[in-house]
Design a protein around this nucleic acid. Structure first.
Lengths: 194, 194
DNA sequence: TTAAAACGTTGCGGTAGAGCAATATTTAAA
DNA sequence: TTTAAATATTGCTCTACCGCAACGTTTTAA
């Protein structure tokens, strides 16, 4: 149950099993059905989620009812609505499982208790903040001024398995295009590769 | 010289003049000419800049030679390429003065010395990190799926003076559109308001 | 003060992507 | 296993924005 989380924290901090076992029980296992929503817009995000299995989609819905995905969290990744989690104020996004999933969840209170008392968890939090910022920057600089086809190519380059694992709808909402356009782009990509 | 910086830190932390005066001299005044570039892409960003007067533009140039602006720092704002500043690795962006400007600059070494020794500066750094993240999120969620006109309107709503203070070229590169399109949108905006 | 350079506006045609509709394919439920 | 529902593909038309070109306006520098 805690193997992946241990591996994750060990890789980032060099923690040993004994130290890990002293706090890992703060993380609770939760099974999530496909398409189950674990955070609604407007609710306060009370947990940080570590994905053991499956995939979470973090997205918002704009005034025209269109979905925009900020982030997919696959196995061995943390994910939460940081702004809501940190300040305990209403979230602007939804979190939903795209597959039957298992997460290790930890409450804000417990999480910050560990951040303040376990040096390795302090490092992990710092890493989470830095990655969150860098990921945001990448989305701004990496996509701006690029055609949809170029964006798709760079997504595939970074995460080759993503195309076969996620639906067109999900990927399109991440790229900010329609599923129609994505379908056409995939056809083009395939043409180039043959 | 330090009035604005004192005001800024006082507002965020309640610091008093005496405590402030014990470390403010770590910030050095620098005057920057219009169009002067104070960070080049590829160089390591060694300083954090607090704008006393004028305006800094933070932007990158893509492979087609097009400029994309991430952030404008006006008076009473901090700005730096955080990723480069934190890790002391090559920057992906340029920093340039859009007006004759004055900044208070502090080196990475001194900055983190203060963050680690002055509680109020620790708070300031946390605030900078959080704002950087939230600003990024706003750019992703606030712009995606919106027409250029809607983006322009929300920019004007947030910073009404920006249209008259900055050139079309600067604003267009922030919105990810061409100056031609911006010019046409401004005409449309004006039509609506009459 | 004046000439040159930079910037802003607008007409025009071109293009990427949107979105409907019709069909094919996959997935899920009974 | 069969059928319904969700998803994917593709032709067609439409629109927002691009980008050139030509012209007007403002800024800058000598």
């Amino acid at each position: 149950m805690y193997e992946l989380l241990y591996k994750y924290i060990h890789n980032k901090t060099g923690i040993d099993q004994k130290a890990f076992s002293e706090f890992c029980y703060y993380f609770k296992l939760k099974k999530i059905k496909k398409n189950e929503i674990i955070l609604m817009e407007g609710d306060t995000c009370k947990y940080n989620f570590f994905v053991n299995k499956g995939c979470l989609k973090f997205y918002s819905i704009n005034k025209d009812g269109k979905e925009f995905t900020r982030y997919f969290a696959f196995e061995v990744k943390f994910g939460t609505d940081l702004a809501s989690f940190i300040d305990q104020k209403p979230s602007c996004e939804y979190i939903e499982a795209l597959e039957p999933s298992e997460v290790l969840m930890i409450s804000r209170e417990d999480f910050f208790f560990l951040v303040d008392t376990v040096p390795q968890m302090n490092l992990i939090y710092r890493d989470i903040l830095e990655m969150a910022y860098k990921t945001s920057q990448m989305r701004i600089y990496g996509f701006q001024g690029k055609s949809a086809l170029e964006q798709l190519k760079s997504l595939v380059a970074r995460q080759p398995k993503i195309l076969s694992r996620l639906s067109n709808k999900a990927i399109a909402s991440y790229l900010g295009i329609t599923p129609y356009t994505l379908s056409r782009l995939k056809a083009e990509l395939f043409k180039e590769h043959s």
